[in-house]
Design a protein around this nucleic acid. Sequence first.
DNA 1: TAAATTTGCTAAAACGATTTAGTAATGTAT
DNA 2: ATACATTACTAAATCGTTTTAGCAAATTTA
Lengths: 341, 341
Amino acid sequence: MRKKRVSIKDIAADLNISVTTVSFVLNGKAEEKHISKQLTKKVLEYVEKVNYKPNQIAQSLRTGESKILVFMVEDIANSFFAKLARLIEDLAYKKGYKVLFCSNDNDDNKSKELIHLFKNRQVDGFIIVPSPKIQNTITNLIEERIPVLLFDRYYPELDTNYVVTNNAESTQKAIEHLVDNGFKNIAYITLDTHQSQMEDRLNGYLEAISKYGLQEISLRLPFSKTISNQGDKEMKTFLESNPEIDAILFATNYLTETGLEVIKRDFPGLIDRIGFITFDDSHLFKTYSPSITAVAQPTAKMAQEAMDIILKLLKSDTEIPNRKVILESSLIIRDSSKRRF
Amino acid sequence: MRKKRVSIKDIAADLNISVTTVSFVLNGKAEEKHISKQLTKKVLEYVEKVNYKPNQIAQSLRTGESKILVFMVEDIANSFFAKLARLIEDLAYKKGYKVLFCSNDNDDNKSKELIHLFKNRQVDGFIIVPSPKIQNTITNLIEERIPVLLFDRYYPELDTNYVVTNNAESTQKAIEHLVDNGFKNIAYITLDTHQSQMEDRLNGYLEAISKYGLQEISLRLPFSKTISNQGDKEMKTFLESNPEIDAILFATNYLTETGLEVIKRDFPGLIDRIGFITFDDSHLFKTYSPSITAVAQPTAKMAQEAMDIILKLLKSDTEIPNRKVILESSLIIRDSSKRRF
DNA sequence: TAAATTTGCTAAAACGATTTAGTAATGTAT
DNA sequence: ATACATTACTAAATCGTTTTAGCAAATTTA
């Protein structure tokens, strides 16, 4: 049998006063509600003594606030999202919010289910890395005036708050850098999805390619939930049938992992002859052979902006103009993208 | 103004019946409570029509159950824990539980604060990667009969449920493997903490060393919250002052990251001459140069066992015997630990 | 046909907080 | 002396469920 926790009622009974009084004192309204200094002190001391902590579930039911935020990502095991999760966790706790993380696998049904689940738990707000087509669900949230913020990707046709990075410019810069280093046949390996982050990255690549009058050589892999070895075979045939390739840009981190495997296994020595850039940095890229050039997204800033926005939404009851934040990624240049000879 | 959600009361009013009846129907007790088939059907259909979903906060308040589990780790950004988080998330959701992840930075105060925080939120259970000295807080939880499970590390003096891996045997095997490959001066780089997982790993190393009559060469770095470049300088001087070292075993993943940086930066070529093994595998180790041998903990099994245990605890009101699960890690042998010449 | 049982349903308490709308007692202004 | 304000506090409603206890009508049993 679980020991009964002390409630505000117990305190009131023990002190022979009403729960109202206790509640007022606990909520710092003693003065405003004309509770005498002595009684206030007495209550506070007793509360301290019995180590009373209010039941947050009851508070939530009464106030409608849960002090819980949801951070929904594609996959919390992905290092990019894990990193962000940690940053957001820290910022949220500082403001008295807890964070429920969940992974949607970029799947619409899962996203919707999760959102409904959390609505019923009265979470206070959502930071969402949206799957391809959940505009309606997002719209519903907005109409119900629940704070929502899209993250990492957004819907161009939907007027919402979002925090993303300058994806097009980033790939563009990456390609320019490769061109500067003498690479001419630059391949791009991405996912076959129309989500903004990927479309933007692709557009950046295409624009840069056309700007320099280069050939487009791209591989668009279907999105699959099994992240490991995604597109293994496709990449191999792609590289075999395009032997002119002298540089590759990968659109996201797990594609890069597979890419490195394929290259190292099936094309020995190639890694040291081609230009190689990936989206999303990893600790190990610094010491990899060759060290890997990466587009690093400003995770700390992204988390900070996200929290700023969601907190603002939480505070104001009145409609406030949507904020659309686009942060700059930086190209961390390492050996893999330099002409080496 | 947030649109008011439909409540069980609304439904009762709309159908001109009592909330009790609605509740019974919704909870599948229609038959047991002798609610007629027709009325049951009517209620169900109406509920479906207005898309009613019970308010879980109210349910929690009434039942004392929140359907929320806490998974407290050292750092959710650490790939080992992020991976586990995802596995646990998936298992929990299948059973109707949500998971709150939080990071304690291996700090006792933070751990305690978090635990208190969540107790007030009436979470149903805790899976905890405990910081060095929170035995008392854990004991309190147990005494309050709240389901707890220690994870990744445990307190030998505390009789609790836990899921860990065979750390001592793992490092022992790792050293044996290095010995088999002709390495003789095997260094061990670890954290200066007395937590079980690290003590066990150290003991495994020491036993193996003494078994083969080798010299102990170990570096114990103070634990620090800033994970990046932890012990950078110490490692450098350690390697400089122990030039006889021909192999290194790293006790945990972030030490390995720093280790690789130091070796690649300050001791060019060394990585190809020494034996190198790390605890915790990474995708990139497979294609690293040289590919890195790693002790891989059975994350999927760990998560599964953890959920099994916590679910059992959640179900039974009666005391059940503590389960102490020790799972086997596997040594994934790659080039870095082989004698190469 | 009376008693007992079953059927079909509901009123109201409870979970633990917050908050509105009071009351009684005292103090102040006119 | 009367009206008005202020002080110090509280009763009761409320949030949205679950659950206990119970009632009236219909049905079965004796």
